[in-house]
């Protein structure tokens, strides 16, 4: 029975890692690729470790595997955020079909200070001016 559950979890984890790879391949923009790698990739690796925890059936192995999963869960988003920020500042282009970018002129010349957007200035509607034809 445990074997069956581990096998299912292995399959789901493998599916997610494959989806992450496909995402890295297909998606047209750095930030979208980071979505794929951080979410699907972390879940895939985490599920593999979970299957290992179930399969080994020893408390010490399971404890270490769970610690590994928790570590992945906490560090992957941090890494993605840092990379996204660095990528944006270094000029990684957004996908051409991106709707709008509220961050575009908020950095000062040095790149260090980032001004906030006061509530009145928030973009409320999602359409781009040249969207209306479609």
């Amino acid at each position: 029975m445990i074997d069956f559950i581990s096998a299912l979890i292995v399959l789901i984890g493998a599916a997610f890692t494959l989806i992450a790879g496909i995402g890295l391949f297909r998606l047209p923009d750095v930030y979208l690729r980071m979505h794929a790698a951080t979410k699907a990739g972390t879940l895939g690796a985490g599920l593999m470790l979970l299957a290992l925890a179930l399969d080994a059936q020893q408390l010490e192995v399971a404890a270490r595997a769970i610690a590994g999963i928790l570590f992945l869960l906490f560090t992957a988003p941090i890494a993605a955020h840092l990379l996204g920020r660095a990528g944006y500042l270094s000029g990684s282009p957004l996908w051409t079909k991106t709707r709008f970018d509220e961050l575009s002129d908020k950095y000062d010349a040095d790149g260090r200070k980032l001004t906030g957007t006061p509530v009145e200035d928030l973009r409320r509607d999602a359409t781009k001016p040249d969207d209306r034809a479609t």
């Binding site: 297909r26 979208l32 957004l94 079909k97 991106t98 709008f100 961050l103 928030l122 973009r123």
Partner: peptide
């Protein structure tokens, strides 16, 4: 690919 991304500001 039918999704339309954006960067939004969140107060």
């Amino acid at each position: 690919m039918t999704f339309r991304p954006a960067i939004i500001a969140f107060p």
